[in-house]
Nucleic acid binder design. Structure first.
Length: 467
RNA sequence: UCCCCUGUAGCUCAGCUGGUAGAGCGGGUGGCUGUUAACCACCAAGUCGUUGGUUCGAGUCCAGCCGGGGGAGCCA
């Protein structure tokens, strides 16, 4: 290691048999402990959870003066010899010969102290929270999962498709939309009937931020066979929960020549692949979540990776719930949607792990889901997990033109809004399936983090868009 | 949008049935030749979210507003 080129902390700590050599590290000071002739401080550079400990022994005057400026939060560059540590807590440490404070962090005003802070407080200082153990770990896990997702699909010959962020089709019914406009909010042009004249807006018609890339992904699936999207998604719902955001990231694979069973296989393989990759690739961070955030997390995920997911129909789910003897706040009956308490009971009490539910009544699911032969249920599927409930929602898509047209009518939608979507069934239609996975919910599940606002760097939610 | 909880030093909180504030941690100073949630001693620090009301007197009771958290619905 070249002393003039800083080495990342992760690599310093990974040094198995440290020879006495000169190294340079740089990062932010996490903690400092002083004695009369000794000074210990720990530096973290985000490359891993652990810090590198630095020791200065009997520093002479210019160094002692600089060490006085080394405080929690300061950025520093330190050079010294990398040596085995005589004390417990670390295998190697830097015996400092030079230290430079690059940027001070005055202790009387720096918001991060060397103690535990509540997540609520850290949310208010989102510009500094990645410098904490938890949020550093979340950031690394998020990165690892992102990469694993791409690797999973790329290794299976899926093509990454970029679906639009701005959409003019407001008609999908997947929730409230954010409007995109260049019209002046205080004095928009008005049409003859008194309504806002969107013909004079940027796109010549109303436009919104996307709530799903699915319909666009279907277009490319019906040409490239296997595609996926991975991008931001927006919902203007006034929902204030620990698992909803106004801006979140969604993964949406779409596969031609694939039925609902293939879809379930894909979803299960997908979750197992990325979780397995995470457990091996972020072992240190995952151990942290296991001990500090959710006890037993690793064991739970290990079991998920090794055990086949339970697959049941909606009808079987209803029977299991009604036959459980448990009384629910919302009564269970065939035809009504499963409530949170029902999903939790299924995953946590009855099956003790992920469950895939299929065959929902058509009335409670979207128009594009393929109608079963019974005429009553559709080939939708939800992957439910303990604690969070629905983590994946998907379906085999209706591939029959006449049936799809009828379902659009029944749903109170307009065929003309879906002319291009219907064309996919008009020309070379194929059975195809796909699903949507909320990325932040996956991170919640994988880390045990309770609040979705703590697994995205800059959360966007109702009345909340700071940073 | 609905329901519940909450807002007191930098942070986390205590403050009972109303009598103008306290702890731990953090910070400062001093001590300690190996610390690692460091330790020991001392010190500083709060117009008790905000507006109004009840009262001789309000952190404590009441109302509105603002902020934070949890649950439900919607969903990913």
């Amino acid at each position: 290691m070249n002393p003039t080129t800083p080495t990342r902390v992760r690599d310093l700590l990974a040094t198995q048999q440290p020879v006495t050599q000169l190294v340079t590290a740089q990062g932010w000071v996490r903690t400092k402990r002083d004695a009369k002739h000794l000074c210990f401080f720990e530096v973290n550079d985000g490359s891993c959870l652990s810090n590198i400990q630095v020791v200065f022994e009997n520093p002479d005057e210019p160094i002692a003066a600089e060490l006085a400026r080394v405080q929690t939060g300061a950025s520093v560059r330190v050079t010294g010899t990398l040596e085995p540590s005589p004390a417990k807590g670390q295998t190697v440490e830097i015996h400092g010969t030079a230290v430079e404070v690059i940027g001070e962090a005055p202790a009387d005003s720096y918001p991060l102290q060397k103690k535990r802070h509540s997540f609520e407080y850290l949310r208010e200082i989102a510009h500094l929270r990645p410098r904490t153990n938890t949020f550093g770990a979340v950031a690394r896990v998020r990165n690892r999962l992102s990469f694993a997702i791409h690797r999973f699909f790329q290794e299976r010959d899926f093509f990454y498709v970029h679906t639009p962020i701005i959409t003019a089709s407001d008609a999908e019914g997947a929730g409230e939309l954010f409007r995109v406009t260049t019209l002046p909010a205080d004095n928009p042009p008005v049409a003859e009937d008194g309504s806002v004249d969107f013909r004079r807006d940027f796109f010549g018609k109303p436009a919104f931020l996307t709530v799903s890339g699915q319909l666009n992904a279907e277009i490319y699936a019906c040409a490239l066979e296997r595609v996926y999207t991975f991008g931001p998604t927006f919902r203007a719902e006034n929902s204030n929960t620990t698992r909803h955001l106004a801006e979140f990231w969604m993964i949406e694979p779409e596969v031609a020549f694939c039925d609902i069973d293939g879809n379930m296989d894909l979803a299960e393989d997908f979750l197992k692949f990325v979780l397995r990759d995470l457990l091996s690739g972020c072992a240190e961070d995952m151990a942290f979540f296991d001990t500090r955030i959710q006890s037993g997390l690793i064991e739970t995920l290990q079991k998920v990776v090794e055990t086949p997911f339970r697959r049941i129909t909606y009808t079987e789910a209803v029977d299991a719930l009604t036959g459980s003897g448990r009384t629910f706040e919302f009564p269970v009956s065939w035809g009504s949607d499963l409530q949170s308490e029902h999903e939790k009971f299924l995953t946590e009490e009855i099956y003790g792990g992920p469950v895939i539910v299929t065959g929902y009544p058509k009335e409670i699911k979207a128009f594009y889901m393929k109608l079963n032969d019974d005429g009553k249920t559709v080939r939708g599927m939800d992957v439910l997990v303990p604690r969070l409930g629905e983590i994946i929602g998907g379906s085999e898509r209706e591939a029959d033109l006449a049936t799809l047209e009828r379902r659009i009518d029944e749903s109170g939608l307009h065929r003309e809004d879906y002319w291009w979507y219907l064309d996919l069934r008009r020309y070379g239609s194929v059975p195809h399936s796909g699903f949507g996975l909320g990325f932040e919910r996956l991170i919640q599940y994988a880390t045990g983090m309770q609040n979705i606002r703590d697994v995205i760097p800059f959360p966007r939610a109702v009345k909340s868009a700071e940073f």
